[in-house]
Design a protein around this nucleic acid. Sequence first.
RNA 1: GCCAGCGUAGCUCAGUGGUAGAGCAAUAGUUUUGUAAACUAUCGGUCGUCGGUUCAAUCCCGACCGCUGGCUCCA
Length: 714
Amino acid sequence: MGQTHTAEIEHDATHPQKSKLAPDFQICLNDSRTLTFFAMHENTNAETTPPNPERKTLDDRAKMTELERIRHSAAHVLATAILRIWPDAQFAYGPPVENGFYYDVELPHRISPEDFEKIEAEMKKEIKANNPFEKLTVTREQAIADANSGRLGGLTERPNGASKFKLDLLKQIPEGEAISYFKNGDFIDLCAGPHVMRTGNIGAFKLTSVAAAYYKGDEKGPQLQRIYGTAFKNKTAMDEYFKMLEEAKRRDHRKIGAEMGLFAIDTEFVGPGMPLWLPKGTVLVEELEKLAKETEFAAGYVRVRTPHLAREKMYKTSGHLPYYAESMFPPMTMVEEDNKKRLHELEQQEADIASKLRNQLKNLTPDLAEKDKEVLMLRTVMGKLQFDQGLLSERYYLKAMNCPHHHRIFAAEPHSYRDLPLRLAEYGTCYRYEQSGELFGLMRVRSLNMNDAHIYCTEEQFADEFRAVNDMYLKYFKIFGLEKYQMRFSTHAAEGLGKKYVNEPELWKKTEDMVRKVLIESGINYVEVANEAAFYGPKIDVQVWSAIGREFTIATNQVDFAVPAKFGLTYRDKDNSNKTPLCIHRAPLGTHERFIGFLIEHYAGNFPLWLAPDQVRVITLNDDEALINYAKGIVSELRTQGVRAEGEYGTDPMKAKIANAEQLRVHTMLVIGARDMEAGAVSVRLHGKGNVGAKPKAEAIADIVASIKERRAN
RNA sequence: GCCAGCGUAGCUCAGUGGUAGAGCAAUAGUUUUGUAAACUAUCGGUCGUCGGUUCAAUCCCGACCGCUGGCUCCA
C-alpha cells in the first residue's frame, strides 16, 4: 500500500501552524515554502516533531526512534551545559526535530555562535561523565513545588527564578496522566521521555545555529532563544550528514543560477524577491511553458490571458480584501490633486476611530480575529466613504492570484452544462508582498508565474476531472524523474464549520469522500491531514523529493465549492435551472520560480537535453577555414531543427574550449578536427560523461533531435 | 516583521586604525592545439549605504538597506 495515513502527525516542520487569523480565506494556490532535509537512513514518517509542540501522547512518545531519543537526550545535555555557564537560564521546549534537536531558552545573555564552543565543551563533559538518564515519577503537587523552587530545568533550586515555562507546561498535562522527571547528573527536567540510557550514548553532536522563537509559537508570547544542534549515533553518521549538507550547498539554486547565468535578483533597482530571468533562464521558463501547453492542450484545456491588475471590487468580492490586504502589494490609488488633503484628513479620522474601536473591543472580545475583523470592516466602510465622496477615482491592486480573473472570464459569457468542464489555463503572473524575512532565492519570491488553471465542472464530472489532474501530476513526475512524492490531503474539521470553513457539512463530506476515493483508486501516495483545508474545500499539497532527498512543496490542487458562488457564476443545467459550478484550482508545475529552483537542485544544473539552456556546442580543433565551415554547417543544421547549438571556432586550445563548455554545463559537445571532417563525422562528448566516441554527423544530429522531442531523461 | 550571522573587483576569497590585494572571469596580443584550463599584458573596487568617534575609518560605534539561518506568516 502506498498510502500512509498519518492523521496523528498534526503538523511537521514543513507546515507550521496555520494562521490564527482568518485561515478561511485561502483562496488560491498555496506557494508554501518547504525546504527541509530528511533524516538520513531513518524512517520517513515519524521524523518530524512539531516546532511548536502540541502535546504528544505518551503513546506517541513511546514510538520515538533511537535517533530521536539520542537527539532528545542531547537537548537535555545542552540544557545542562547552558546552566553550568548561565545558571539563570529558563527552559521551555527541547524536542528532537528532523535533523537534530533544539532547546528554547530564556536568558539575558544573547547566545551567539561564538558561544557554541564553550557550550559544546560543557556538553562533552556531561557526555563523558556518562550519567544515566533516571526517570522519576512524581505527584502534580511535587512537580508544582519543584517548578516554583526553580528546580525544574535547573541544576539546583533557584529561589529567584521559578521554572515558569515548566509551570505552564505542567498545566497542560491532563489530570490523571503520570508526571515524570528525567535526571542526568544534577540536571532535572520535566519530561515524559524517552531517553537513551546514559549521556554517553550520544555518539556525536554539534550545535548548529541560534534563532529567535516565540514561546508556543505565539507571536505575542515571550521571545526565546532557540539553540539548534544535531546529534548522531556516531561520528561517521554525523560526518555523512554534514557531507550531505555540503552537497546541498553545492547544488544550491542560487549558486548554480549565478554560475549558469539563469537569473538575477536586482534588489537595488527591481526589488527583493523579484527575479529577472536572464536569457538562459528564460530558456527553462519557456521549455516548461511549452511542456505545460502541450500537456494541457492534450487534456482539453483552453488558454486565457489576463491583466496583472484588477479593481478593488474584485478582491472584495473574492474575499481577499480586507483580510489579506497585507499580503498583497498596496493598492495604486489615483487621487485628484485637490482631494489629497481631504483624503489625508479622512485617513486620520479612520486611524483614530480604529484605535478607539480596538481599545473598546480589547476587553469585550478576547478573540483577536474578531477584533481585527471589526477594524477591517471599518476600513472597508471608510474606503467606501472616500469613494462616495469622489476622492478616489480608482483603486487598483496587483493580482496575488489568478482565480478571480478566471472567474470573471467564466462570467463573461453564458454557459450551458454542455460547455462543462471548462478548463481555463494561464501561466499567470502574480505578485505577493511576502515579508522580507521570508524571501529566499527563487523559492520564495514576490513576483511569480503560476502554472495555473481553473476547472469549472459539475458535481458529476468532479471525480473524473480530479483524477485527470492527478494523472497530469504523475505524468510530470515521470518526465522529471521524481520517484518520491507525496500528496498531503487536507480536510476540514467539524468544529471549524461556520468559522474556519464554510458551513456546508454535507458538501464537505461529499467532496472529501470524492477526493479520497480518487486518491485511493489511483494508488497515489498520500497522507491525510485534518483541519488544514482551505475554507472553501479540501486541498492537496504536493511534496516532492529532489535527487538528493531534499523535500519541496511545489504545487497544490484545491477543490472550491464556495467562491464561484460569490461571483455569481452559473451555468444552465439540463433542467433549465441555473447552477453554480464546482471549481478545481490546480498548478502541477507550481510557479516557474519555485519549480525551476527545485529543478536546478534536482539536476544539480545538469539538465536533460530538452531543458538544457546550452544544448549543443560544436568545438573545432583549430581555426582552419574548411573545418570552421564544416562546423558552421552542423550548427546551422541543428538550429534549423530548433536545437540550441552554438559554435566555438577560436584559436584557444581545444582543452580550454572543452573545459569552458563543461563549466557552462553544455549538454552535448561535438568536437571536430580534420579526421572527423574527412569522415563526415563528429566526436560526441557529453557533459559530465566525457568522450563517447565518433559517429556519423547525420546520426548524431538525429539522436539529438529525437532526445529533445521525446524529452528524454538525460 | 522578530532574533542571530554576514556584506571587500562580475565570481571565490585575503587583508590592515594611515584611503586595498590574489586566483578565475573580462579585454588586447601571442599560441594552431584530439577531449576539463597555453603564455603575456591590461582593465576592474567611494571596501553595502548614511551618520558618529578619531589628526586619520574598509577596519571601532550606531542606524538603515540587502543577503543567509531560524521564528512568525504563507491567498
